[in-house]
Every structure is written in C-alpha cells, then in structure tokens.
Amino acid sequence: MQRMKLLVAASAMAGLLSVGAMAGNADLVKQGEKIFNTKKIGNCLACHAVNGKNINNPGNLGPKLQGLSAWPEQALFDKVYDPYTTNPISAMPPFGKNGVLNDEQIKAVVAYLKTIN
C-alpha cells in the first residue's frame, strides 16, 4: 500500500495520473493535436509525419509516427519531456526539460499521440 502511494505520488509528479481523468479525453486529444500542429507551440509537424492523419506538409527530420497507441503513456511522456533519456544523441528537442511545453501541455500531446496507430 505504501508502495502504491509512492507510485501514485511519483506519477502525479510526472504529471501523468490525470490523463483522461481531468478533461474529457476527446478534449485533451484535440488540445494535443493543436499543440502538435501549431508552429508557435509544439511544432511537431516540422519534423514528423503521422500515420493515418492528414498533416499539412510534415517534415522528416524525425520518423513518421506510427504505432504509438501501443506505447505506455509514461514512455511517450518521457520522449516528449526529454528524448535524451532514451536516446542521448537525439535530434529531437527536449520540450519539457527546456520549458517549451509544460506538463499539462505534454499530457495533452500524449493523449493525442495515443490515438496514432
């Protein structure tokens, strides 16, 4: 039980617990999609095409995103927060670590990424 609490605390700190619980999931997905596609916010499309979604002129410095629905949320969160944790030479910017996106925004992006098959 104690351990469980710790886990809960840890994931709340990482800002993950509330995905889907806080706002309606559909809203969150929409919000995430907007961050993904807006130049002044996430601008993810500068480097990524997305499987099954209609993205306007995506770049390809990064891979076409696919199969992300199968990724654990934490792994997606970590990738966006700081890609160097899993890939020290990643060309992807550390959006969370460098304060480009806050935890709430990353949660929204993760909700969107989870819809990518």
Binding site: G59, N60, A91, P94, N98
Partner: peptide, 21 residues
C-alpha cells in the same frame, strides 16, 4: 531552448525536410 545545433539541420539534416523545406 530547442537544443538544436546548426549542424543538426545543415549537416545531418541536409536533404531532409523541416516542414516542406
């Protein structure tokens, strides 16, 4: 804050695309 180097885009990145560029 994006932690990109010039080389990310113009050495390794050259020939790849940022958006449609």
């Amino acid at each position: 804050y994006l932690k990109l180097s010039c080389a990310t885009c113009h050495v390794q990145g050259s020939g790849n695309r940022v958006r449609k560029e």
